[in-house]
Structure formats: C-alpha cells, structure tokens
Design a protein around this nucleic acid. Sequence first.
DNA 1: GCCTGACTCATACGTTCGTATGAATAGCCT
DNA 2: AGGCTATTCATACGAACGTATGAGTCAGGC
Lengths: 221, 221
Amino acid sequence: MSQARHTRAESPETRADVGAATRADLIAAGRRLFGQRGYDGASIRAITREAGTNLGAVTYHFGSKRGLYAAVLEQGLRPIAARVDAAVRSEGTSLDRMLRVVEAYFEHFEEHPDLPHLLLQEVAAGKQPPDVVLEIIRGVKEAIAGLQVEGIADGSVRAGHPVLTALSVVSQPIYLALVAPLLRTVGPVDLAHPAMRRLALEHTLAFVRAGLTPARNEIHR
Amino acid sequence: MSQARHTRAESPETRADVGAATRADLIAAGRRLFGQRGYDGASIRAITREAGTNLGAVTYHFGSKRGLYAAVLEQGLRPIAARVDAAVRSEGTSLDRMLRVVEAYFEHFEEHPDLPHLLLQEVAAGKQPPDVVLEIIRGVKEAIAGLQVEGIADGSVRAGHPVLTALSVVSQPIYLALVAPLLRTVGPVDLAHPAMRRLALEHTLAFVRAGLTPARNEIHR
DNA sequence: GCCTGACTCATACGTTCGTATGAATAGCCT
DNA sequence: AGGCTATTCATACGAACGTATGAGTCAGGC
C-alpha cells in the first residue's frame, strides 16, 4: 500500500530525484486521502504515513497542507482539461464533439472516481479553490462554450446561453460521479459494475444529445 | 445577528418552550455555519455563539455535533421533498410535472442557497449522510422515477432508465446551485442577480424539456 | 412552599491538528 | 577529501476541537 517509495528506485537516483519522488508520493497519497476523507479529514500525519515519508515533508515540499492540496488538484485536473481539449478539437459536428467531451469526462472519472469529490468538497464547504484550479476550469469552460457557439452557427446545437449550456453538459458526468457512492444505497444502482457504467454513459449521451439538439422548427431558419 | 433568542419571546414561555427555542436556534445557526464553512469548519463553539447559547447546548439537545448536523439536514431537506411531492401530484402531463419539479428545486434554492452545499459537502468528503436523510432522498428519487415511468406510458417522456433520468433532471438545479459561487468568478455569471436567475431557470427548463421529450420517431409507435 | 426535573452555563480534559525548529544524512562539486 | 546543499527526520509548540462534568437557575406540580 505505502510501498511506492520502496519499489520506485531501480536506476541510481540523484539526490534531486529523491526529492521529486517524495513530492510525487505525497501528491499520490494526498489525492487518495483527500478524496476518501475530505480535506479536513485527511491529516498531514496520515498523508505522510501513507506516502512513506516524514511529517515535515509536506511543509518542506509544498509549504503547507493547502499547498499540497492545490498541487493534488492541479495534477488531477490537468489531464481532464487536456482530454476535453482533444475532444473539442476532434472531427465532426459541434454536437458530436460535445458528446465526445461528455465521453472524455466519463472515461477519466472511470480511472479516477474520486476526482469530483476532490474538487467539489471544498466548493461545497464554501471555500474558493486555488487560483491554478480556477484557471483550468476557466479554460475548460471556454472550450465548451466555444463549441456551443460554433454549434449554433452550424445548426447542430440549440441556441442558448453558452456558459449555462456548458454547465448543463458537464454537470451530467460530474454529478453522476459525485453521487455514485450514494446511488449504491439509494438507487440501488452500482456504477462500479461495468454494465451499469455502460448504461449510464449511454443514458447520459442520449440525454445531452436530446438536450442540445435544436427543436424541429429551429433547424431550418 | 445572533439576537434570534432575544427577540423571540413575546408571550410567556413555559420552561419547555425555552428548550425548544434553543433547539431551533441551534439548527438555524448550524445551517448557516455548516453551509458557509463546511462541517469541520463550523465549530460547536462558533455555532453556539451564533445561536446565543452555551457551548454545552449542542451536546444536551442533540447528543453530539453530528446529531445537530443530521437535524439541520433533515430540517433543510423535508421542505424540498414536500415541494417535489406537490409538483409530482400536480396537474398536467408527466413532462409538465417533471418541469415543475425542476422549478420547485429552483425556487427552494433561491430561498436557501446553501442547501446543496450542506448536503453535498459530506458526500464529497466521502461520508455517508445520516439515515433520515437517505430516507428522504429515496422518497424524492422514487417520486421522480415514478413520474418518468408514467411519462413513458403517456408518451410525454422519452424511454430510459428511471433512476438515471431522475438524476439527470435534478442534477441541473442542484449542480447549478452548488457551483454558483464559482460561477461568479469563472463565468462570469452572477446567479444572485434576478435577471440571471430567470435566465438560468428558463435555460434549465428548456434543456430538461428537450432532454426528456421523445424523439420524433419515438412519439408514435 | 418546597421539591423535582428540565435546562443553562462555566470550566476542565484529553486529543489531534498544522506548523516550526534544529539536528542528521547523503549526493554533488571542486 | 571536504565543505555545500538539498533533503529527511524526530520532536516540540501552541491552538483549537468535541465532549464530559458538575454547579447553578427557574418554572411547574403537589
């Protein structure tokens, strides 16, 4: 479990490599524990223990607990932004690409189910995310909103407020991932089951497609 | 601010009334502070100070901090459940009533903007909500899912998984309220502004309506 | 008129937290 | 070889937390 640091070294490490590796271990452990127990619930002591390092390591490498949290968030969000960007720049109508954005979220959350928890726990607790995170979110928002504007022009997407539309779209995979643990007992729907995941993806794509498609009388005008 | 307890008494209070009033003050203060600062961020000391009572009051009336939190959640969620129920039982097609559910959420969140934060902060932090809360959520879920099943029968709603559909619908107002503070800096979209609220409601209704309406070739079959 | 029980209050306890500090360790460069 | 520097580590500190405890207060019932 916490052996990452011991199995990591194969080739001779420089002194700086050791530091970088500790940094990486802390981010990995922080991601795991912040996601599972929340920011306040994950103590520096637990995180450093999980990372197989010392209590002082967080202060040394990140300045503070909040600094580590920002690094965890940034490292978790960048790949999503990249995936969204790839989907936006892909081939097809705006609607097609919008659905690919949804798929990108789905796939990413399948690999990292705790990501929505990681970000939204602080938002829900009334705190402002770190600036780096806001910048990433802004980028994603603009990419999706741009896609919608494009879609209105080429007729594949219904007219509407770009930011609100972007929100409606991304809220689907995000909210689903967020309440997945609740769904198991309330649904009961187990999103950990592959067949259920596939069904959920298909449902979401269908819902978003329907939500974005122009009404019959809007198409030609 | 924390004068609730002093302005409350007009008629002669019985001894038991005093206790009930303290209870109510604690719930109100807890709701405010839990919503603003999160569960861990709101200390018993801060809550009792805000309620104008003593540190021991929470333990006495609710057994523990968690007991107060459960009471706060229950009191916050029951009115929503009632509103949803009223919308479900109202007149019109299933689709109409579904949209009324969305409106109910919107209106309720306008009065209590911190409600989504209150519930989801704990979900996001990986904790299971109290049983009372799960029961309420279950009821709402069943009401909405039932509406969808009805809608498939009367042809006003597209076929699909009832629970996932219910989730897609409620995620719209909930997620919007959840990220509203973020939206102000990222959007920039200020949902506190009445005109923006109206626009957001109209957008959401249109999106959900489109998402639920059967495709052209599904209507007659 | 006093006793009872519900309620309030002040204070203390033990724990846990994030951070600070200074010594120890080890690769790197000249 | 030996100092330099980056990193690790053990430990200490002060603050804040949730809860427990016991004394104090007061309306209501007999």
